[in-house]
Design a protein around this nucleic acid. Structure first.
Lengths: 114, 114
DNA sequence: CCCATAAACCTACAAAGTAGATAAATTCTT
DNA sequence: AAGAATTTATCTACTTTGTAGGTTTATGGG
């Protein structure tokens, strides 16, 4: 998170995906959600690197999932938001609100003429 | 702006300050505004570096101000938003809205007990 | 001229984000 | 049990963004 005490844009999105998915959030599911909601590709590496950083900062916590009923593959690492993470999200939101306060975007008229 | 087609957190704030200040936005005034609204220190270098990048991407345009009536010091470089910049802000806003859609933050109770 | 002032610019670094390859842990098939 | 298939995590090397703080430039005033 930048010196302005605000989460980076990508950090914020990852954290939100973790919140939304409750106790079912793991790397692949987070990536899927980001791609769906942003409409662009997201690299696995980006997701894991960010999760690592968020965990180091104490904003999320991870646990390895049980190997599990007839599901192949390496066990999942699930992520949960921590109180500090929720606080960061709130802070980010409130700073941004102040930034957008009273902003009127120069209306981007698509292509009309009348 | 990251691969998710969204402006970085700091880029967004700088761009918003440019919009808000209309045709009066220059390095120092932008910094002042960011500090006021974020409540944290902002380095001049960060502001200029970001403005440079935004200009290279065509999101803002700069012009050197007239030396001017009894105002000492180096002339200002003023920044204006470009249509592409406004579009990026819109896109950033709309992606983020989708990300926050339906999010319920685990209520961070400050410290009460009743 | 030299000084004060205001602001731009530069340099070297730290942190965030990206791409794609590689490795690990598991189940299935034979 | 050995190996193929699968699912996911992890690593490495890199590009872009953001930071800190010092240096330079372009004024106007005495």
């Amino acid at each position: 998170m930048s010196k302005t005490g605000v989460l980076g844009a990508f950090e914020e999105m990852v954290l939100l995906a973790v919140v939304r998915q409750g106790d079912e959030a793991f790397g692949v599911s987070i990536r899927r959600e980001l791609e769906e909601r942003s409409g662009s590709d997201v690299a696995m590496g980006a997701v894991y690197a960010t999760l690592d950083r968020l965990e180091n900062k104490g904003l999320v916590k991870s646990r390895i999932g049980e190997p599990h009923v007839s599901r192949r593959g390496r066990p999942r690492r699930y992520y949960d938001i921590q109180p500090a993470g929720a606080k960061e999200l709130e802070r980010t939101l409130s700073v941004r609100d102040r930034m957008w306060e009273g902003i009127e975007l120069p209306t981007t008229v698509p292509s009309a003429d009348a």
